[in-house]
Write a protein that binds this DNA or RNA. Structure first.
Lengths: 351, 351
DNA sequence: CTGTTAGCGCTTTCAC
DNA sequence: GTGAAAGCGCTAACAG
């Protein structure tokens, strides 16, 4: 029966700041200053203390630090206004964490804003400055938004982008999926589930102007072109994520092309898309979409949808909070834990 | 710009034990006793204090509690000895948490044991009694093991089963997937990816005596029988999770049946299985297996394997630790967070 | 049965 | 530049 301990200091009591202070021949306060890169310490004192910390693999006790700082932390979540089921799920999962949050003296505030209007979004972000320890934002990739994010970072606020990224900004972290890979995954599924049939594949998106939709379509086309020559992808229908519009566009397309064998629904408007499909009596069309909502769950169970590409909203909510907290505390982030995976959800592995 | 706070007490300083004590007209110590259901408090005092706590939606500050208790917590992970890549991954992910663990004064010890021999496993567990605050165990469903688990629970140790459950025991939590659903998912994938072809489907398992393998096969057969009548499932080959044996059995089967169109590899032995397939020049056979390892990752990229059903080992490792910690602290468990999902991994969504 | 008190290991003034 | 000391909100003795 082999035994092995993970921590460096096995069962003996862990070191404290005081121990480090004594070893380095300085006071508690000085070690604390060095630990947090605060000014007012002579360079060689800094070095000596850092060496002592490193030599002992000293880890300050987070609970003690948390207790001592006194004041609670404030985080803001800047989310799209309007009824988006996916965003509502994220908010619901944040709500489920409320006991967890308050036991840690964390205040999370939701701020609804028009994330599709760059100037409105930027203004909402600017209004937050310095008020908050951390901000999670469903961002829009636009110069004004980028500037607002950078200002927040400059002011010392920790910023994570959520679901939709602004890679060129100085945000500390992105919590969301790789949308190109998500599109590739959708492509592989449509292709494989079509089972060698040849024909056309339709794409319904909200708008090709949305970064995430554009990336998904890009990935989808990549795979279709390289791996499924028997399938030809048709021009993208833009349904603005609305049920009616998406449904009408698709219905017209289905009416004109009897050889459509696959359908990729990139964004929302799922209700309309599904209706067009069934109204046209085209149940055999391979139908792949995004996200597990009450609706897509039902469609998967009924066999109308074949697969949903999903980013786990609960995971995204919790990851955003954890990342903001770790950043605020100066703790390392568990990359692997906070990475959002691209889930393939079919009927039998519905969460 | 709507704003809304999640916590009940918005921005005012959070309440403390002392506030509750004052309001209820008792001392700090009494509130503490009530909070932790400790004996020695008159029933109506208990009621009065509980009411005050509830009325104020009081949440004790975890950091303060953690700091005050002084001693570090000890958790044991009882894992299979021998080289199992999946288990090694779990151990590796625990290793990556070491800074996180020690910042919280948590000691995690690995205990390797023969989990396939019930009496050895039971003995390992019995040996732990009372030494540990929590135990995570890759269990075996056997009366002796069940009794050992129950003894631990009786002694006040928190117990979670990991990957393989003992549902009839008094373990506090199971961290792992629903294997029947995993088997169903595998079945749906083999069926769908076969794309309407008819023929035979082979199953290679470690042993039907292993609960998880048996459950997966059960789920697999369920789906095949009800949804893919064009495919007929052949008798299970038992390869003991060994490459050579699995490979030989499968090679013989492939030689005798030219109409095999699908293959479900339930456990390990993947190397042998893949070799048998390629030696026989049967690249078109739909091949679905379990877990993302260095090997299955390569096979997926090469197109040899079509999909892997995966339980995220990193998530399992962290969930086990978090659940043990929450149990030890008396905190609620975030069910949704700790639930292990059945991941479908194909080439394009490889993690 | 209930209350008082001394810390836990940090952070944060305030002195020197 | 550096140090001393007063808490942060609990827990766990020990008194009564």
């Amino acid at each position: 029966m082999a035994q092995e301990t993970l921590s460096d200091a096995p069962t003996v009591a862990a070191l404290t700041l005081k121990d480090i202070a004594r070893q380095a021949g300085v006071s508690l306060a000085t070690v604390d200053r060095v630990l947090h890169n605060r000014p007012g310490v002579r360079p060689d004192t800094v070095r000596r203390v850092q060496e002592t910390i490193a030599r002992n693999a000293f880890q300050p006790h987070v609970a003690a630090a948390e207790l001592a700082r006194g004041r609670a932390r404030r985080f803001a979540f800047v989310m799209p206004s309007g009824p988006n089921p996916f965003m509502q799920q994220i908010e619901a999962y944040l709500g489920e964490m409320s006991a967890w949050l308050s036991a840690r003296r964390l205040n999370v505030e939701m701020i609804a804003t028009d994330v599709f209007d760059p100037s409105v979004l930027a203004a909402s972000l600017e209004a937050l400055s310095a008020e908050y320890d951390g901000v999670a934002v469903v961002a829009l990739d636009h110069p004004g938004v980028r500037a607002a994010i950078n200002d927040l970072v400059e002011a010392g606020t920790k910023v994570v982008t959520l679901v939709s990224d602004v890679p060129s900004s100085r945000r500390h972290h992105y919590v969301g999926i790789d949308n190109i890979a998500a599109g590739r995954t959708a492509g592989a599924l449509v292709g494989r589930l079509a089972g060698g049939r040849s024909g056309k594949v339709a794409i319904v998106a909200g708008s090709q102007g949305l970064r995430d939709h554009a990336e998904r379509i890009f990935g989808f086309n990549q795979v279709m072109a390289s791996e499924f020559p028997e399938l030809s992808v048709m021009p993208v229908l833009e349904g603005r994520d609305e049920d009616d519009r998406s449904g009408q566009l698709l219905a017209r397309l289905l009416g004109r092309h009897a050889d459509i064998v696959g359908l990729y629904n990139v964004g929302a408007g799922t209700q309309g898309v599904a209706k067009a499909l069934s109204d046209a009596g085209r149940g055999k069309v391979v139908f792949v979409g995004h996200d597990v909502t009450a609706l897509t769950r039902r469609l998967l169970l009924q066999g109308v949808m074949d697969a949903a590409i999903s980013q786990n909203p609960g995971h995204e909510a919790r990851a955003a909070v954890r990342v903001l907290l770790a950043l605020a505390r100066g703790e390392p982030i568990l990359r692997e834990q906070e990475k959002i995976r691209i889930d393939i959800v079919m009927r039998d592995n519905l969460p």
